[in-house]
Computed example of a mutant assay.
Amino acid sequence: MFADLNRYAATMHFVGQRTIFSLNGDRATGEAYCIAHHLTMDGEKRRMMVAYLRYLDAFVKIDGAWLFAERLLYVDWLEERGLS
């Protein structure tokens, strides 16, 4: 998925609301919302694709640090815009 981002001239991701669903010892689960902006350029023509995403995460604590054990990406909807 991340290699696919190289096709854009620029990207910007705003990660907002985060909720922790469960916390059991050294394991946790949660959800985060994200709005991702992806700029494409074709000569002078610019377009913006905006993706509204949710991440469902599993975390594990190893040596005192919380790490991602798994991240599932869900696309709620996409929007395409022409830019001036």
Score class of each variant (00 low, 15 high):
M1E: 10
M1K: 11
A3G: 08
D4W: 08
R7M: 12
R7V: 13
R7S: 14
Y8H: 09
Y8T: 04
A9D: 13
A10G: 06
A10R: 10
T11N: 12
M12C: 10
M12D: 11
H13S: 08
F14Y: 13
V15H: 10
V15Y: 11
G16W: 02
G16C: 02
G16F: 01
G16Q: 03
Q17T: 10
Q17H: 08
Q17I: 06
Q17N: 11
R18V: 15
L23F: 00
L23H: 05
N24M: 04
G25A: 01
D26E: 06
R27F: 05
A28C: 02
A28H: 03
A28V: 01
A28T: 02
T29E: 07
T29Q: 03
G30N: 00
G30Q: 00
A32P: 03
A32L: 10
Y33T: 14
Y33C: 10
Y33S: 13
Y33Q: 14
Y33A: 15
C34R: 08
C34A: 09
A36G: 15
A36I: 12
H37P: 04
H38Y: 08
H38G: 06
L39E: 09
T40E: 09
M41W: 01
M41C: 15
M41Q: 15
M41Y: 02
M41I: 15
D42L: 08
D42G: 05
D42K: 13
E44P: 12
E44V: 12
E44Q: 12
K45E: 10
K45Q: 13
K45A: 14
R46K: 14
R46C: 10
R46V: 08
R47G: 07
M48W: 09
M49H: 11
V50H: 08
V50I: 15
A51F: 07
A51R: 12
Y52W: 07
L53K: 10
L53F: 08
R54C: 06
R54Y: 05
D57I: 01
A58E: 10
F59V: 02
F59H: 04
G64S: 01
A65E: 07
W66S: 01
F68W: 11
A69H: 05
A69G: 03
A69Q: 11
E70K: 13
R71K: 10
R71D: 00
L72F: 06
L72N: 13
L72W: 10
D76E: 15
D76K: 14
W77F: 15
W77T: 09
L78F: 09
L78T: 15
R81E: 00
L83P: 05
L83E: 04
S84F: 12
S84R: 13
S84N: 09
S84W: 12
